[in-house]
């Protein structure tokens, strides 16, 4: 998808850039496609940035700034396309990296200014969608499910985005949103943490997932592919009927 092609373009309509992130390129392609579809239905022209790779977070959070900077720089240059179009990221964690930590990563480098420029343009997808709530409602989204929303830690505690994804879910007729005990607790993904300490990571996922069945949850929704990879992967391994899906996918299904 990294071809820079215009997915949906109409003269005179607002354009957004959709940054797939590395997880979106490898394991969450459907999420990116769903996000693009929803945005197109809302009347946006959607561009994918040519040459964007990864935000650099896996190395940055492990303390390896040199490779983190090298990788992030490629993405930075790809995103810094001279436009002022909002850059939408279907991941709270990657948004947080670009918005908050890039300035640290590129501090005192030639790219410092560009990093600030991009930090100003980047938006977490669900908070962008929340602003489109009435346009979404006009599409009459409909999906019958008991839904639990899982807060991504970086989205919740670094970006302070809590209500927005819930507001988006509330536009869908038939969705019953349930708040779980310990709903704001980390799922145990933590990027490289998940493979450094797999047993602890899985135990943390289980602590969250054990809340689902008693609450009669059908759908576990999040806005972070990392959390979904963790929680969905564990649900799948345990043979659970509960699906873990991205908010963009829920919306795409609901307006299909």
């Amino acid at each position: 998808m990294d071809t820079g092609e215009v997915i949906a373009d109409h003269v005179g309509v607002p354009t957004v850039v959709l940054f797939p992130t590395c997880l979106g390129d490898v394991v969450a392609r459907q999420t990116v496609a769903d996000a693009a579809q929803v945005l197109a239905r809302l009347g946006f022209a959607v561009r994918h940035p040519r040459g964007a790779t990864c935000c650099g977070q896996p190395a940055f959070n492990s303390g390896h700034d040199v490779p983190a900077r090298a990788v992030a720089r490629a993405t930075l240059h790809a995103l810094d396309d001279g436009s002022v179009d909002p850059i939408l990221v279907p991941s709270g964690s990657c948004t947080s990296m670009v918005r908050l930590h890039w300035r640290e990563l590129f501090h005192k480098t030639d790219d410092a200014e560009a990093a600030l420029r991009i930090a100003r343009r980047v938006r977490e997808l669900s908070s962008f969608l929340a602003e489109q709530s009435s346009a979404i409602a006009a599409l009459q989204p409909r999906l019958t499910a008991r839904v639990a929303y899982h807060d991504s830690c970086h989205m919740l505690r670094e970006l302070r985005i809590r209500e927005e994804p819930r507001a988006v879910l509330a536009t869908i007729e038939g969705v019953e949103l349930v708040e779980l005990a310990g709903g704001e607790r980390c799922c145990g993904f933590g990027g490289t943490f998940s493979v450094r300490y797999p047993e602890v990571s899985v135990a943390m996922a289980d602590a969250k997932l054990q809340e689902l069945e008693p609450a009669g949850i059908d759908l576990l929704v999040s806005a972070d592919p990392g959390c979904l990879m963790q929680l969905g992967g564990r649900l799948s391994r345990e043979g659970s009927p509960v699906r873990a899906v991205h908010l963009a996918t829920v919306l795409a299904e609901a307006i299909a």
């Binding site: 459907q30 493979v195 797999p198 564990r234 391994r237």
Partner: peptide, 16 residues
């Protein structure tokens, strides 16, 4: 296996 010992790796080719 540090991932797959406890979890599947889901590819999500469809919305299933």
């Amino acid at each position: 296996r540090r991932w797959t010992d406890g979890r599947d790796l889901l590819l999500r080719r469809g919305r299933g």
